[in-house]
Amino acid sequence: MASTVIGAGITIDGEITTDEDVVVEGTIRGKLTAKDSVSIEAGAVVEADVIGGPLTVAGTVTGNITSSDRVDLQGGAKVIGNVKATRITIADGAQFKGNVDMDV
């Protein structure tokens, strides 16, 4: 289990930085900076720039996503913003509006 979880009922207005992996099910407005994996679950609302390791998105992200690893936009994901990662997958059913920067 992840050591940092932003549960479904929770809203964070501000900046989060962590060395741990993060699971987001709630709402974040501001900025999320993680060193490890970040999972933005279905139902989560992230109005923030997201920086992390391997990133999975099934929820909604409005903001730029930067990953030192790969980014997976899963079915149901809605992303408005630019994505920068070494690899990116966009699943059938994911909505994405923005630029992709594959940093090889």
Partner: peptide, 15 residues
């Protein structure tokens, strides 16, 4: 919400 040992939030936590 679980904010782990290395997690630093600058801002409000509500809900």
């Amino acid at each position: 919400a679980i904010l782990g040992r290395s997690t630093h939030v600058r801002g409000r936590v509500t809900g």
